[in-house]
Nucleic acid binder design. Structure first.
Lengths: 199, 199, 199, 199
DNA sequence: GAATAAGCGAGACGGTACGTCTCGTCTTACT
DNA sequence: AGTAAGACGAGACGTACCGTCTCGCTTATTC
């Protein structure tokens, strides 16, 4: 019986990693998180949803956190890039508004919140999350602020990291407590912290 | 440490709720969280550590989150009370400094962070956490700000909730990302947000 | 709604071992072995079939072999008891005929064969099988032969263990190779080995 | 130890079946069985040990049982041939002694026991084992007995198959139960069963 | 002062997910 | 065409907790 099955199931990629399986896992994880929350995000559920064997997940990811990090980094690069040119107060304000929208409306924002949360529960998650996501992004944000200062566009009284946390902190905290983030809040933060009276 | 009667295990209280068991559970939960993290905080581990039957826990608490909430509320009332008199900018600054210390150094601060985190993972936790902790505390904080404004001590450009989140957000975010919170950050937030130039 | 469900599920026995679960496991194991062979005899399949949690099996049995041993010992005591009185050549012959029937026709005989087999694959099985089944049974058989000799009923040229193995070996070997065991074979063995010419 | 070409891993043969791979698999299977028992005899372990790809095994053998059968048949032909000339009672006795030694001391004896065992667990093994090993060997043994009877050397009261099983059964059973097989046992079986008093 | 009722330690139970292992199939790249 | 390599879907392994349950005991409170 020489294989006359009409649908060839999936064109298994042989020796190399199966890109279709990789994407199926990332999407399954994302969907499950958004639809049923982090509690429903088990490796078994992801495998089931993705139509993939558990071992395929364990072969490529050490934990479900790394799966989420993969999706977050991809989505984040796509839809929340740190501006690299023309750093003015407005540029920064627009970036923060985009960040607020990302956290509130984008499914990937839920992933970010879940990772912030899981990092509290598990030190390994914290380490990976800082190294792979928070660190690099902070690097870019520091650069943004530094260039805006150099150009005389803004003059915060705090150091770069303190400034960024003062701007980003309220937005994240609002998202964590399930509240909306109005433009007014973001705008006033930018005005009061980046262009204070005494400057 | 009362009731150190060595002989007959524990003199157990018969008909009424056993206060010793209640305290043992609260302390066990606290200790486990601080020592081994939220991941190690299972009902079975709490029962084991507290020397209590699982059923005794389930009889009085619907979930481990409620145990943590109980400890948090007690500790929070004791060591982080919202000031009720003399509302000045300094009062508010000191409260925020105390909050930063609570989050950074106090074991109970770890409980608060864990609950913020768990609230992201589970809607029931979020509801209970808001209703039993965040809501009441926010009420007091709103009152604090309102009285300070009335007394002409501060004049924030944002509404009360926005103002509080703008002050508290950075502190929480710093704690969530494992960074320290210097006085300078808190002080500058108070100055820039509560006494802005245009006021 | 104070529990008006008509079937009370199962009257869980509380603190004590649940006899119904124990029997369900034994029967499930027996059934699966007979119906689908040793290969289908997994702990998961037994649990599924018995309507029992896996952990309930692991709590009481260290391996599936011990489950089979439990069923074998119970069935064996019931349907293949070594005769304890009137030891004559005919008694022995009847016992061996019973043994042949047990191996060939009784489901429990399949269990015995499976355990002989598994003992070849796994030393732990071998140890347990000898200690719990083969040893005690051999003790009784030795006693049977010894009393028959004392009474002058039989006079084998071999020692007790050699004699028993010479009688039992062909029966077991026949069963292992899937052949039938005619009375003639058993009878001739008894005649030639227990009442040899030179005695 | 042939083929110790140290340099380019193995000079692998391209188009034709690789004899070195075939032998490596057979030896690996044999070694693993003797060293770690049937439980450790997985296809993956054989491939690992033989330094061969799994697929190479699956291409040539339908199951690990067939690998064992290949080794058993080769070893059995070499070291346990059924005598073809001078069939006397002594010839038969010596053959049985050799069989006992094979089962007890020869590594290939462990293979035979493992296959007898596995045949209990899996019908496909049973079929193959009977067809490729037990059947042909029984054919030769029947012939041996028949010629001995024709020559008047022995006169068993049982038919050929019953006689052979009566002789072989105890030896196999002893091996299966891990006991030694003394010459005395073999000799007495031959005497009592092949030259009974009434013949 | 006996009966009742509730809390308690203990732990069995049916489940679900964990992370690991091996199965047998497959595809690729090399010889 | 045979091979080494190894990814893949499948599913069992033995463990840890989940939340529910029943037991046997202890200790007030009630009749």
């Amino acid at each position: 019986m020489p294989a006359v099955n009409s649908q060839p199931r999936r064109a298994h990629s042989g020796n190399r990693r199966d890109e279709a399986a990789r994407l199926a896992v990332l999407h399954a994880a994302d969907d499950l998180l958004v639809e049923h929350g982090f509690g429903a995000l088990t490796i078994e559920a992801i495998a089931r949803r993705a139509g993939v064997a558990k071992q395929t997940i364990y072969r490529w990811w050490p934990s479900k956190v790394e799966i989420l990090l993969d999706t977050l980094i991809e989505d984040s690069d796509k839809r929340l890039s740190v501006p690299t040119e023309h750093p003015t107060a407005e540029t920064i304000r627009d970036y923060l508004r985009g960040f607020a929208r990302f956290l509130g409306d984008d499914p990937a924002g839920k992933v970010l919140l879940a990772l912030i949360a899981e990092a509290q529960h598990d030190p390994a998650t914290a380490a990976s999350f800082h190294q792979r996501y928070l660190g690099p992004r902070r690097e870019q944000e520091r650069d943004l602020i530094a260039r805006a200062i150099d150009a005389g566009e803004v003059s915060p009284r705090l150091g770069p990291d303190d400034t960024i946390d003062a701007l980003v902190g309220p937005i994240v905290y609002r998202a964590l407590t399930g509240s909306s983030i109005p433009h007014e809040l973001v705008d006033t933060l930018v005005e009061d912290l980046l262009r204070p009276r005494s400057a």
